[in-house]
Simulated scan of single mutants.
Amino acid sequence: MKIFVDRSKCQNHGLCAISAPANFELDTDGELQYHESFDEEHVDDIEDAIDSCPLQAILLSRDAA
């Protein structure tokens, strides 16, 4: 599974960083940084981050490829 953030939608609100701090963070310039790949143990937090995004800019790809 991989995380994808649609940068054309994301406005760096940072709610994802609150929900899943191991995978999302705002850098010193306030820009979202994230890890595309993640450990399965973090999937619940990532799903919470997806749900918390006011612009629905985060997608979770379940493809193995």
Rank of each mutant, 00 (worst) to 15 (best):
A49D: 03
G14N: 08
A57V: 10
N12I: 02
F4L: 13
R7L: 14
D39P: 09
V43S: 07
Q11G: 00
Q56I: 11
E36I: 08
S61H: 03
P21N: 03
D39T: 12
K2G: 02
F38C: 06
D29Q: 13
P54S: 06
E40M: 10
Q56D: 14
A49R: 07
G14K: 10
S37P: 07
K9M: 12
V5C: 06
N23E: 02
H35A: 14
A64L: 11
E31D: 08
E25C: 04
E25Q: 15
E41H: 15
P54M: 05
V43G: 01
T28K: 15
Q11S: 03
L15P: 00
L15V: 02
F4N: 14
F38H: 10
I58R: 06
S37V: 09
D6C: 09
H42A: 04
S52H: 09
G30H: 02
Q33I: 14
E25A: 09
C53E: 13
N12T: 10
I18D: 09
D29N: 15
S19A: 09
N23F: 00
R62L: 15
I3G: 04
D48N: 10
C10G: 11
E31L: 09
E31I: 05
E31Y: 12
F24T: 04
L26M: 02
Q11P: 00
D48A: 12
I46N: 11
C16Y: 00
Q11A: 07
I3L: 05
S37C: 01
D63L: 13
D45R: 00
I3K: 01
F24H: 02
E36L: 00
G30R: 08
V43Y: 09
E40V: 11
E47M: 09
R7V: 06
Q11I: 11
C53P: 14
G30M: 06
C53S: 04
D44W: 05
L59K: 05
Q11M: 12
D39V: 08
G14F: 06
A57G: 12
A20V: 02
C53K: 13
S52T: 13
S19L: 05
L55V: 10
D48S: 00
A22T: 13
A57C: 13
S8L: 10
E41N: 11
T28A: 13
A65V: 11
F24C: 05
N12L: 04
D27Y: 06
A22M: 09
S37D: 14
N23S: 04
P54K: 04
A57K: 15
S52C: 13
M1F: 10
D45Y: 00
